[in-house]
Design a protein around this nucleic acid. Structure first.
Length: 508
RNA sequence: GCUCCGAUAGUGUAGCUCGGCCAAUCAUGCGGGGCUCUCAAUCCCGUGACUCGGGUUCAAAUCCCGAUCGGAGCACCA
């Protein structure tokens, strides 16, 4: 029997497992332009990170352009935070997603006015004077409000008055005509502009404008002006697309291709909102936007979660419309692979207990800085050490342990305020280089002697760990290290004067 | 109430467009073992899923209908 081999190959190719992002539908010779458009009313959260990473990644793959657009058109309800503009830029850079272009919507308000006027002239937009609940009643009933019937001249006139600040906040909005009887109430005559008297936080904008566009309008116009070819965002904005398409149809524009991802819920963070975090920072619950408990990129950065790991994590999620609920453990697993080979090892004793060693002789332990390498660190040891409370808890006289890279000990007394152990072993010179297999549980330790240790605080999402660490940790400022039997941390600050180190916990 | 979207192992994901190669991919987690002076890393082995019910078809994870469950929108927020 004859089988065409090329046919079989072609069929088999289809089922090759793939991972990550689905392919983009790109026209012949089309240059892709993608954007991420946050409201900088707070720093980038883990949700924003998905938008940055995925859009930038597509731009990179297709040799296209990545635009960062600040949709900062709400000076009142969710006013932009001035520092957050900078933070977004920093965060993008950290993620290796430096935008090819940065746009501030608040700089381009007059542009939006132009298109508003065009739509009014086309008879596709009208100034509505209904109160909110009044309009809602019309909308729910599927009937036009009285202002919808106004002629183009009247609408133009009223629009000019809006711009001239002749109306008060709440008195008038500009609506886009869709279909008042549309079966989906979410799509019926939506508001495109409203009056906001609150000045914009950006000093260069301030109170220059009294009429501000809403997302659907601003985004619709901007996406067209910026030549966005593909919009990739959460599926909560699917209706937005449907609303915006009316504007595109009226103006004869072509809507970008869209891709939506489902809701992402992170176990560790649960439900959160930027404003709720903001309040918690204000009342002192959190220390700031980079508190290790907060779901921002700034916090992850401070904890030593690398950009490569974050990017891989986000890209592996793909762009499915399924709602997902996942744990950061996946991110940690990726990050561990990244930092493990480059993170030096140190002893950190949490919840420390000082212990007296009988028959101890002064000496220096020399553990490896990293198990894969041969360079050593030096830890002087005297007659007192700190051990983790949990390591000696429940031990009885006669129980034995090995102090890692030092020698074996036997418990003598755990009752007194300073527990006592005694050194067991053979010749002193062999203590540092015990070759035989350890017979007892191996624990780590920190010398309790003058200048022999640092006070260390590890700030973790669940709690702060206070303890002591070996002195050479001081040389690792800014680096990620592994505290043996504890986990990976980033050394956040070193106060040499007071021999105090603050570290941020990354993960186990 | 109206509308839209989704459903593959504990979690995430591939496969679904164009039905057969799927007794279903990969990662993570979990269990067991090797190595190791860290409860890490690493290596080996194992574990575990197509939401349910109908239909179409020689053949369904894949197509159709219904149900159930989950999520979202119906703001003068983004």
């Amino acid at each position: 029997m004859e089988i065409a081999p090329e046919l079989i190959e072609e069929i088999s190719e289809r089922k090759v497992p793939s991972t990550g992002l689905p392919d983009l539908e790109v026209g012949e010779g089309e240059k892709v332009v993608l954007r991420f458009a946050p409201n900088p009313n707070g720093p980038a959260t883990i949700g924003s990170v998905r938008g940055i990473v995925v859009n930038a990644e597509y731009a990179r793959r297709h040799n296209g352009e990545f635009v960062l657009r600040f949709d900062d058109t709400d000076p009142k309800t969710k006013p932009p935070m001035l520092e957050a503009y900078l933070w977004y830029l920093e965060d993008c850079e950290y993620l290796g997603a430096v935008p090819d272009r940065v746009v501030y919507a608040s700089d381009r308000i007059p542009k939006y006015y132009e298109y508003a006027e065009k739509l009014i002239l086309l008879g596709k937009a009208y100034v509505c004077f209904c109160k909110r609940d009044e309009f809602k009643r019309y909308k729910d009933a599927g009937v036009a409000c009285p202002h919808r019937a106004a002629d183009v001249g009247t609408n133009l006139e009223c629009w000019k008055r809006m711009l001239n600040r002749e109306y008060a906040e709440g008195e008038a909005v500009l609506r886009i005509k869709t279909d008042v009887g549309h079966r989906d109430p979410a799509l019926r005559d939506w508001a495109a502009f409203r009056i906001v008297e609150t000045p914009h936080p950006r000093p260069e904008i301030g109170d220059r404008f009294g009429v501000w566009p809403l997302l659907d309008f601003e985004s619709a116009v901007e996406d067209h002006l910026l030549g966005i070819t593909h919009i990739i965002r959460g599926k909560d904005l699917m209706d937005s697309e449907l609303r915006q398409r009316y504007v595109y149809d009226y103006l004869g524009w072509q809507y970008p291709k869209t891709l939506h991802w489902g809701r992402m819920k992170i176990h560790e963070f649960g439900k959160f909102s930027t404003s709720a975090i903001s309040r918690a920072i204000a009342d002192g619950t959190y220390t700031g936007w980079d508190d290790p408990r907060v779901p921002t990129l700034r916090a992850l950065r401070r904890r030593g979660i690398t950009a490569v790991a974050i990017r891989k994590f986000m890209i592996d999620l793909g762009v499915g419309e399924t709602d997902i609920s996942l744990s950061l453990d996946n991110l940690y697993a990726i990050n561990r692979k990244v930092i493990d080979p480059v993170s030096n090892r140190y002893f950190f004793v949490w919840d420390p207990v000082a212990v007296e060693i009988r028959d101890a002789a002064p000496m220096v332990a020399t553990p490896k800085r990293h198990p894969d390498r041969d360079d050593l660190r030096e830890i002087p040891a005297g007659s007192r050490v700190f051990l983790c409370g949990e390591d000696i808890e429940g031990l009885k006289p006669g129980d034995r342990l090995r102090l890692k890279n030092l020698y074996d000990i036997e418990i003598v007394d755990t009752e007194s305020p300073t527990p006592t152990v005694k050194r067991i072993g053979t010749a002193a010179q062999e203590w540092c280089t015990i070759e035989e297999k350890p017979r007892y549980r191996i624990i780590h330790w920190v010398p309790d002697m003058q200048d022999g240790y640092l006070r260390v605080v590890v700030r973790a999402p669940d709690r702060a760990y206070e303890g002591v660490g070996e002195a050479s940790i001081a040389s690792e400022l800014g680096n990620t290290v592994q505290f043996e039997r504890f986990g990976f941390v980033r050394i956040d600050s070193v106060d040499a004067e007071n021999r105090l180190v603050v570290a941020y916990f990354a993960h186990r």
